[in-house]
Every structure is written in structure tokens, then in C-alpha cells.
Design a protein around this nucleic acid. Structure first.
Lengths: 226, 226
DNA sequence: CATTTAACTTGACGTAAATCAAGTGAGCAC
DNA sequence: GTGCTCACTTGATTTACGTCAAGTTAAATG
């Protein structure tokens, strides 16, 4: 029962399975498949048949989408507890996005059929899921508005502040290398480099080594204009 | 019972209430409030307490979000059958967006409490809602990727092609005036004007009068690069 | 019809940031 | 150690597009 025990632990991590009674959690855990993905491998790729919901048990995964002109955009970074595959809820669809593991990663899978059964049995799961999706829609709307109306400098500063508050320290290593950070912010690595230097010389941050950053003036960062 | 009859008709229009049995539809209709909003009036504004889901029965509404620097972004255009207010599913939140009627508009309202009851009673509604939200997330992701990786010209050309296919003709009036179209595409009215002229002179489209456009070469438009 | 107003067009100009190109430094194999 | 690779930096150049400003057209109002 070691495997089952792991599955239960994994399930309990996930926001959409919070506040369920033990029986339901056990039921969910029995539907879950574990999978390990090594750094650099893909969890799924655009064009794959989308038939399962993916839940992050441990690790870091970047989800990207390529547009017609072949340019790649980092849509989101999956961390422990995040899930992806909303589209799994539709009838047959293909994945529009690709997901590459940035670190060794542990994920849980639930198939569409199992998930739909689960929802029919447990309205609580449905409501949790609706909440999660509603929040995600609101986030995406806010992000869409921000990318079209703010400069790279503002977005980068904002990213630093957010990351700092997620990590609960203002002295941290960037979780993404600059290439990926550039994709995420919709800019180029060169520009990231320049902006960070600019923040350094104006005293807003200090840089040490490859990826280490210390925020000196959070309020100042939030007022950056370029 | 005229009012109830209207409510049933309205409810039947809405994708999330499709494929329900008559009893459920009647139940939904009894929860719905009608509201009329005149052109130029606001359906809701940022900062309002969000406590109901809004369903478009007739008309056109633009939903906008303002970012920190005060610039406005058109998030989406609500048409008949669309709904907005996913955030209604959370506990107390404020609206992040504002919604202004572009034409005289008829909407249906359902309060959070009523909607949550509905979901608990009818798993079918929950699943429809999850589908709708999942689709919306996928759309937003695609849109976010497009805005960060493509030029204004590409986005405009793409918008024209999409609009044409929605309206099922390639000879139509733009549903938005250029000011709003600019907000939607994340650009300025001047640039829209210039790009359209460019498309005209290269024969891709013909313009007639204020807002009338005819697409001459859809394939050409889809290959626009600037 | 005349007058006002607002949407739109067109031109001139400035600039943020992409792109191109040439380093620099760090990690890794041998 | 020496050499290789890859992430990153820094500089030079180009460009798409925003902004400001001055028309022009067309709808709205009296």
C-alpha cells in the first residue's frame, strides 16, 4: 500500500481536492497515476491527444505555446500543487501547448473519464474546480491586460516583486534562466539583462553570481516606468 | 407568466444551460432576473461587489480592465449567449473589470447563492460550466501568446478573418469602432487606420464608408507579417 | 439646412525594444 | 591544466509603433 499512501499524500497537496472527506480523498487517490519526468523531458507536447488532467506533485514545468509565426511563448510555470489540462474536460481535443520539465518532476494523472465520474459523484470537487478555473481566468485576464499596456521594465519589476513574495524572501535565485524568463515576459534575454543592470545601477536590486538577486527597494520597483 | 416565458427563452439561448431537461430549465429560469441596460451605461464597474453571474440575452457589451498606469485594455466583447462573472464563484471578491453596453442590451442575472445551489442540484450544469471555463482558459492562453509574439498587423488581419468567419460573410461592418478595436488589439486607433489602408492598397481588403470592410483575399490576410 | 461634435485619417517625430554581432565568464569533459 | 559549450553581457543598428498635431469626413443636433 506504499503506492496508495503516496497517492493520498499527493492528492492532499492539491487545492482542488482540499476540504474533502477522507472517503472521497481515498476514492480520488485510487484514480491517480504517478509519473516521473526527468529534467528536459516533455510531460506532453502540442498535438498530443489530451485525455488527462495533470497535477504537479513535485518539481517545475514550463508550459509553452507556439504561434503561427513559429515564435514560442511561455504561458505559465507549473509548481507543486498546480494543475493543467482544463481542456481535458472537453470532448476530444488536442493539446495546444507543450510542457517541458525544468527539473526532475513528479506528477499525478487523472483521465478524463475518471475525472468526469468524480465530478458527478462529488459536487465539492466540481465547485473547487470551478473556483480554480475562475481564478485562473481572472489571472489570465489581468495578465493579458498587463502585457498589452505596460513596458518590459514594468513587467520585469512586477515579476521580481511577485516572485519575492511567493518565495517569502527578497534575496533569492531566479527560478527561471533568463532565456525562459524572456519568453515568459514576452521579450528577449538581452533586454532582460539590460533592464536588470538598470535596476542594479539605480540601486533597486543587487545581483550576485549567475541568477542571484536581492531586492533592495520593493516600493521603488513597483513604481518603475521603463 | 410572460416574464417567466421570456426567462425560459433567455436561458435556452445560453450554452451553459444546453441539454438540460425541462424541469431543470424551469428551475433555472425561476432564479433569473432580467435587466435592461441602455447604450453607454455600465453593466458593472471595477470595484463593485461581484455577486452575480451575467448572461447576455441580447446586445453587445465591452469588458475592460485598467492597469496600474491607468491604461485601459479591452478584455472581451460579450455577445448574445456569452456570460461573464466567473469570479462570482469565489467568496467575496470585487470586480476587476468594467462592462459598458455598446448597444441597448438585455441581460439575465443569477446570484452567487442561487448559482451554487443550482450546481449542487444539477451536475450537468456544473459540467457545462467547467467546459465553458476550460474553453475560455484555452482561448485566453492562445490570445496571450498571440499578443506577445505577433505584430499589430498580424493581429488585425487575424481579427478580420475571425470576425468574417463569425459573421459568415466577408463583406461586413466592423462590430467595433476603431477606438475600441484599438483597445482590443492593444494598439492605437491611428495604427489601425494605417494598417487597414495598407491592406487596402495591397488589395487584401476594400473599405467603404465608415466601418464597412470587404475581405478580398483571406489567404493573403492570414499570411500578413506586419 | 447649417453647425457642432466626434470619429477618423494622415503626416512628422521620438523611442522602447528587437535584432545582429562580438565579446566575456562559468561549468564540464578530458 | 586546455579546450569546449552554453548562458549571459554589452554595444551598435534598425524598426515598428506610440504620440502629438493638424486636417478631413461624417454623423448628430437644432
Amino acid at each position: 500500500m506504499q503506492e496508495n499512501h503516496d497517492a493520498i499524500a499527493c492528492v492532499k497537496l492539491v487545492p482542488i481536492f482540499q476540504q474533502l472527506d477522507d472517503d472521497t480523498i481515498t476514492a480520488v487517490a485510487s484514480l491517480v497515476q504517478d509519473r516521473h519526468v526527468k529534467k528536459g523531458e516533455f510531460v506532453f507536447m502540442a498535438g498530443d491527444h489530451a485525455d488527462s488532467l495533470i497535477i504537479m506533485a513535485h518539481g517545475q514545468v514550463k508550459v509553452t505555446q507556439s504561434s503561427a509565426n513559429g515564435r514560442e511563448q511561455l504561458i505559465r510555470l507549473l509548481q507543486t500543487g498546480d494543475f493543467d489540462g482544463e481542456s481535458v474536460l472537453f470532448e476530444d481535443t488536442e493539446r495546444q501547448t507543450s510542457a517541458e520539465a525544468l527539473t526532475d518532476t513528479q506528477i499525478c494523472l487523472i483521465t478524463r473519464d475518471d475525472f468526469q465520474k468524480l465530478i458527478k459523484q462529488s459536487p465539492a470537487v466540481a465547485i473547487n474546480m470551478l473556483n480554480a478555473l475562475g481564478k485562473r481566468v481572472a489571472d489570465l485576464e489581468a495578465q493579458a491586460a498587463a502585457t498589452l499596456t505596460t513596458s518590459v521594465g514594468e513587467r520585469l519589476a512586477n515579476y521580481l516583486v511577485e516572485t519575492s513574495s511567493e518565495l517569502e524572501t527578497n534575496d533569492f535565485d531566479l527560478p527561471l534562466q533568463k532565456k525562459d524568463l524572456a519568453l515568459y515576459l514576452g521579450t528577449s534575454p538581452e533586454t532582460i539583462s539590460r533592464k536588470l543592470k538598470q535596476f542594479s545601477t539605480s540601486g533597486l536590486i543587487s545581483q550576485r553570481g549567475r541568477n542571484h538577486i536581492k531586492l533592495n527597494d520593493v516600493d521603488g520597483l513597483m513604481m518603475v516606468e521603463n
